[in-house]
Simulated scan of single mutants.
Amino acid sequence: MAIRVSADGVWENATAYTLTNDAPLGVGAWSSVHLAIPSEDCRSISAPAAADTPPATPVGRSTQGFSRLTAAVWAVKAPINKTAQTVIRSEARILSRIFSHQPQPPPPAQYVVPFHGLDPQTGNLVMDALPLTLDDFINEDLAALPEPRRAALLADVFPLLAQHLLAGLDWLHTAAGVVHADIKPSNILLRPTRAGQLAFTPLYTDFSAALSLRPDAPVTPPPANSTSAATTTPPTSPTHAVRLSDPSHQQPSHPTPSPFAAGTWDFLAPELCRATTPPPVPTPSSDVYALGITFLTLLTGASPFDAVAQGNAIRRREMIRVGDAVGFAAMDARGGKRVRDVARGMRLAGWLRAGLAKSAEKRVAAREWGGWVAAAFGRRSGDGGSEA
Rank of each mutant, 00 (worst) to 15 (best):
P148A: 05
P107C: 00
P107W: 04
N124Y: 11
V126L: 15
V113M: 04
E147A: 15
A109L: 02
P106S: 06
F115C: 02
P106G: 02
V112E: 07
L145E: 05
P107E: 04
I98T: 03
H116E: 06
L132Q: 14
P148Q: 11
P146V: 07
E140S: 12
L130C: 09
M127W: 05
P106I: 00
I98G: 09
R93Q: 13
L134H: 08
P103W: 05
L142Y: 07
Q110C: 03
D136A: 09
I94C: 12
F115T: 02
Q102K: 04
L130H: 06
G117H: 03
E147D: 15
P114Y: 07
Q110R: 14
I94E: 06
S100Q: 08
T133C: 00
D141F: 07
S100H: 14
P103V: 02
D141M: 06
L145P: 09
P148D: 11
S100G: 15
I98F: 06
L125I: 15
N124H: 14
E140W: 15
L132Y: 10
Q121Y: 06
P107T: 04
V112K: 07
P107R: 07
R150P: 02
V113G: 13
I98M: 07
R150K: 12
A109P: 00
V112G: 00
E147I: 09
H116V: 15
L132M: 12
V112N: 02
A152R: 00
A151E: 03
L145I: 08
N139M: 10
I98R: 02
F115A: 01
A151W: 01
N124W: 13
S96W: 02
P107Y: 05
A144R: 14
H116D: 14
L134N: 04
F99P: 00
A152D: 13
Q104C: 00
G123D: 10
